[in-house]
């Protein structure tokens, strides 16, 4: 059995069938990427893992925890942290308070302080702006803050939803490097991206999701060469 296992998951929004028997798995230590177009079901998958929506059928299990019944705050305190699409940082709170809020479920004050320092050392730009309001940061800095906030929560499995959205190519590269570094330090990453080129560069494996099901899967390097992926997601 895999570390994170999603098997035949069905999710509905009202009468919209968003996920159709979706199955995939993630092993500890990996960066796994879900590729797909708008509306393919990638964000729904993330929301299902973090407990925001519940599957109507199927198995969602992570490291011995049944994610279909666990409370969202229990999921967070066990180390599954979801960085949502659009960053969703707290705009009128300072950078520092945003980071501290990431440690909401962490009881150990020293661990929080250490992880805040870790976030600042990974992203020195945040340290320079620690007293500024989150909403005054640039898009790339806001994305870094969203990742930093998740780091303070102590992630073992980090879900990142479209971290490259709206960022300039150079900034996308920086953000991807930060994600790769977080992974090297021991955090497993599940990455949802429309920017397939950037994502496949750092991912180990990838799944292609279309209309709520997995249509292709394999090592990232192979998928990057696969003509179906190249045509649909990488362009010329």
């Amino acid at each position: 059995m895999s570390w994170l296992e999603v098997k035949d998951a069905d999710v509905y929004y009202g009468r919209v069938h968003a996920l159709r028997e979706l199955s995939f798995d993630v092993e500890e230590g990996e960066i796994v990427c879900l590729l797909g177009n708008n509306g393919a079901g990638k964000s729904t998958t993330m929301n299902m893992l973090s407990g925001l929506v519940r599957p109507r059928a199927g198995v969602v299990r992570w490291d011995g925890t049944d994610l279909t019944t666990a409370k969202p705050w229990d999921i967070v305190s066990r180390g599954l942290i979801h960085v949502p699409e659009g960053r969703r940082i707290f705009s009128t709170m300072t950078v520092h308070d945003n980071l501290l809020l990431g440690g909401y479920t962490v009881k150990d004050q020293r661990a929080i302080a250490e992880r805040v320092e870790l976030a600042y050392s990974l992203m020195p730009r945040l340290a320079e702006r620690r007293k500024q309001q989150g909403g005054t940061l640039s898009g790339g800095e806001q994305q870094m803050l969203a990742i930093g906030r998740a780091i303070v929560a102590g992630p073992r499995l980090l879900l990142l939803d479209e971290p490259s959205m709206g960022l300039a190519p150079l900034v996308v590269k920086q953000v991807m490097e930060i994600i790769a570094e977080v992974n090297r330090q021991g955090t497993t990453v599940l990455l949802v991206e429309q920017n397939a080129r950037a994502a496949l560069r750092i991912a180990h494996r990838a799944y292609v999701v279309e209309t709520g099901r997995v249509t292709l899967q394999g090592p990232a390097a192979e998928l990057a060469q696969d003509s179906r992926v190249v045509d649909a997601y990488l362009g010329a």
Partner: peptide, 17 residues
Amino acid sequence: RAMRAIALDPQAAHLMG
């Protein structure tokens, strides 16, 4: 801090546990 966070974005606060 949680109160201020919910005031700004309840769903994001939810995701922070």
